[in-house]
Design a protein around this nucleic acid. Structure first.
Lengths: 250, 250
DNA sequence: GCAAAAGTGTTGTCCTTACACCCATGC
DNA sequence: GCATGGGTGTAAGGACAACACTTTTGC
């Protein structure tokens, strides 16, 4: 039961049990190809969308795939994920967060590849996809059935992650224009959480959190009374956010 | 801005733009040594403890290190983490969850190594460390100053993860004996969260969640009125847990 | 009988929910 | 003037925080 890991044992007892040649030690480790895969969410027409590309592999012909790439030598994983985003969308100032690693040995048909999934939120309006990117498309998250690799599983995990995360952190604003109406914000939450929320209580909630900034502008070209536009005041949020004790399993 | 990843470009245009030889594709990816590192928490003498080993590396002589090992060929990362636990503690039925990847290029002195951190909770009483494991020790989490590699950073991240997680999921029971008093449970929460909680409200809270099972036994050998012992009813919890909408940033 | 911790209830406050009416604009 | 959604307030119920006294045991 208490076997020592093989490599460590092999390198022991050279210097009072300590390993001297760390390079040799690391060189003895098995090596694995590492990729990052980005689940890039956007919001359009009151639907949560995800940016997918048609798989490059004949093996997955006509299946959709997340945007990913291998991690370069000495490239930190976050950097690799930002690089994928920049290469594919041209955007540099995008919200991005690591979700977790996926490591099933047979998840890639070409051999073992471990991938680190990242979740990313961007404003579709800020990035009009160019027509040369004709294999790059936004898909309604709820319409996606099956995908290349284990990417459907990764998408599902990231979607759940987002549903939880958006209730505890002000991520949603990354999916909206700088100026947005409360109706847009509510549509966003309803679409992501898959619920209907009471409009009056929703407003009260966000106003009481007190980081929506009334910028004195109004919606335009709407066939009804235009709503006020707001901006998310990030500084105010950072200054006022509190730590929180509240045990509650669910 | 929209450069295509080099490898994908190289393998294109062989079959209508599709890549045929997936093995060759994967073989062309850079490979990285992957390790798992386990942050193994325990609870003893009303303190949160973490299980550490003295570093095997001369480079980190006399520094403490998390328990880790490289991932074997075709070994899933969760399995590698369970293996590390079994090898080091002899325990197989331990709570374990992936936290995240750490990938700074210089985090290991022997060259680039990416590690996936796991958080693990076990009951110290169930596993009396054997004296042959004389470099394996429990350390009070709050007393740890500096560690080998980036392990202090990993520990800090996992500790924060635990503080949050324990408020939303019934993990804490993994740190306690099967039968425990409410006082022990409260001490656990107070130690992990670093706060004082009102005893009466704490009891009400847990009783109202209704998965503590009164087993009709009492504490023994205490120099005061003995408290009742309870057991966590996992089935009842699973059956009653609800989904939850509650937007609240903090 | 004394020390030490277990066990128990009530009240006020705050947060959440449910719900209905007037208002501003485009057509 | 009518259709459409914007904007607002209130009341009830539930959760949480604060708080003190009696009970049981070991010594």
């Amino acid at each position: 039961m208490k076997k020592e890991p093989a490599v460590i044992t092999a390198y022991r007892n050279e210097n009072g049990g300590l390993i001297k040649d760390v390079n040799k030690l690391v060189a003895s480790y098995p090596r694995v190809p590492i990729t990052v895969d980005c689940v890039i969410f956007g919001f359009e027409e009151n639907e949560l969308k995800v940016l997918l590309i048609r798989s490059d592999l004949e093996f997955y012909k006509d299946k959709w795939s997340l945007l990913g790439d291998f991690a370069d030598d000495n490239e930190e994983l976050d950097d690799a994920a930002y690089r994928v985003l920049a290469e594919r969308t041209g955007m540099n100032d995008v919200y991005l967060e690591q979700v977790r690693a996926f490591s099933k040995p047979n998840r890639h048909p070409g051999g073992r590849v471990i991938t680190i999934a990242y979740c990313s939120l961007l404003n579709i309006q800020h990035h009009k996809l160019q027509s040369t990117d004709n294999e790059l498309h936004w898909h309604s998250v709820n319409s996606i059935k099956d995908m290349a690799f284990d990417h459907k599983e990764i998408l599902d995990v990231c979607y759940s992650w987002l549903q939880k995360r958006i209730q505890e952190h002000p991520l949603g604003f990354n999916l909206l224009p700088d100026k947005f109406s409360l109706r847009e914000l509510q549509n966003l939450y309803e679409a992501i959480l898959g619920v209907n929320l009471d409009r009056r209580n929703f407003r009260k909630k966000f106003f009481s959190m007190d980081f929506l900034e009334d910028i004195g502008e109004y919606e335009q070209d709407v066939p009804h009374r235009p709503g006020k536009l707001y901006r998310f005041n990030f500084e105010k949020y950072e200054k006022n956010k509190r730590k929180w004790i509240g045990i509650d399993f669910g």
